[in-house]
């Protein structure tokens, strides 16, 4: 797997530790969805604390992955967006769409518990 996926209880924790090329990002997306199906996960957390650049392509992959997971019936939260990354994404006219986010892993797990499947940040809790 391009990014290690840890199963903790009923959730998957996916921490992106290295910069991904576009091809690797697509592989990451595919592997996450396969792992959600295989493990019948309740929800996933994608931790991007280590990512110092999130450009438009990576932002699209991240939001698509979260939306795909929700469509499958699980929950998804993206955590650890650095302040400078958030500023840059917004300035580019691009956030992460209607995807649930949290400051860190702990708050992300708490958010997962409160979320309804197939609902993003704009509708849930």
């Amino acid at each position: 797997m391009i990014v290690p996926i840890l199963k903790i209880g009923k959730n998957l924790i996916i921490s992106i530790q290295i910069p991904l090329t576009d091809q690797q990002a697509r592989q990451f997306q595919r592997e996450v969805l396969e792992e959600v199906a295989r493990t019948e996960a309740f929800g996933i957390i994608i931790d991007i604390t280590a990512m110092d650049v999130v450009d438009s392509y990576m932002a699209r992959i991240l939001s698509e992955t979260a939306i795909d997971v929700q469509l499958m019936g699980a929950r998804a939260v993206i955590v650890g967006i650095r302040p400078e990354v958030a500023v840059t994404l917004v300035q580019m006219g691009r956030g992460l769409g209607d995807v649930a986010t949290a400051l860190n892993l702990e708050q992300g797990l708490a958010k997962l518990e409160k979320m309804d499947a197939r609902k993003g940040a704009g509708h849930g809790s």
């Binding site: 110092d52 650049v53 450009d55 438009s56 302040p83 400078e84 840059t88």
Partner: peptide, 27 residues
């Protein structure tokens, strides 16, 4: 580009803006 911007003492947000811009253009 981030290394160069850091060496020139650009602040962290501007380093990130430059690195992101370069990512888009080189892609």
């Amino acid at each position: 580009v981030r290394k160069m911007a850091a060496d020139m003492t650009f602040n962290l947000v501007d380093q990130t803006r430059l690195a992101t811009a370069v990512s888009e253009l080189t892609r």
